[in-house]
């Protein structure tokens, strides 16, 4: 009986202690996403892909088909060379921390390079990128919107694209940035027209909530031989209610248009 009383006393003490201080335990908090980069996101011949999360004990696994990695996926050991376009997905694991969110790296095959671009609207003065050919210079950008690889519009972006000769265009890929904290949103739609085809308009899904910064793209299927293309990219006119900037105009940032 005395022993039970003593144990009960310590059980009470132990419980009281727990409510006072709750020290963070293993597996309560997740790792940050691995940092992933490639020598270029547009493959001419090949690129080198690097992934890192510099924390002792971290292991990074990846897939090359867009699926979510597990510890049964390919293990990232060192930088590797890639020759083919695709979606690489990376995830970090650690014995003491929850696994990370995924990091996606999208690699694109180099497309047909236009001979000229003629703009009908202008980017904002502060975000003119490297000039009029920024979106066709075969350079993708990173997540920093201040990089000169981005052109930033606060209005609809309209341009005509010309090729040296008639080319078969399978599709057009428009790369854009999502950085909602900086009021940079996806376009609402992309409209493609030409004398040689009917107008095609693709709606881009809207964001319903905060999302991490991301490089995204919208692909417009064409399947025609064309000399020139008229491209209109519609900007979000009013930032949605869930955002601090609600009602204001959103920014549209684009890095590259790839003509497959």
């Amino acid at each position: 009986m005395r022993l039970i009383l003593i144990i009960s006393f310590f059980v009470v003490l132990g419980c009281t202690k727990k409510t006072e201080t709750r020290l963070l335990q293993e597996k309560e908090i997740a790792l940050a996403q691995p940092k992933v980069s490639s020598t270029s996101a547009i493959i001419d011949s090949s690129v080198v892909v690097t992934a890192a999360l510099k924390l002792d004990g971290v292991e990074i696994f990846y897939t090359d088909d867009g699926s979510e990695p597990t510890i049964g996926s390919m293990k990232y050991e060192k930088p590797f060379r890639s020759k083919s376009e695709g979606i690489y997905t990376f995830k970090a694991f650690h014995p003491s921390w929850k696994s990370s969110d995924i990091t996606i790296l999208k690699l694109y095959k180099k497309g047909i390079v236009p001979s000229n671009i003629e703009w009908h609207t202008s980017p904002n003065n502060a975000y003119e990128g490297l000039g009029t050919s920024t979106v066709i210079n075969q350079e993708k950008a990173g997540l920093n919107f201040r990089s000169k690889e981005w052109v930033g519009f606060d209005s609809t972006a309209v341009a005509d694209i010309y090729f040296k000769k008639k080319r078969f265009i399978e599709s057009i890929n428009i790369g854009y940035l999502v950085d909602v904290a900086s009021w940079i949103f996806p376009p609402t739609s992309v409209r493609i027209s030409s004398d040689e085809m009917d107008t095609i308009e693709i709606e881009v899904p809207r964001l319903n909530q905060q999302e991490p910064k991301a490089l995204r793209d919208v692909q417009v299927p064409i399947g025609k031989e064309l000399n020139s293309i008229h491209i209109e990219i519609m900007n979000l006119n009013a930032i949605p209610d869930w955002h601090d900037g609600k009602g204001n105009k959103a920014w549209l940032f684009m890095d590259e248009w790839i003509f497959k």
């Binding site: 059980v11 132990g14 020290l23 963070l24 293993e26 003491s96």
Partner: peptide, 29 residues
Amino acid sequence: AYSSAFSLSRTEDVIIGHNSHQYKVDLSW
């Protein structure tokens, strides 16, 4: 019976930081 009943926790306290400055994390403070 006491030692198993009074196991403080199944997992370890996490320690963050490096070299001379390492810390346990109190989320209830």
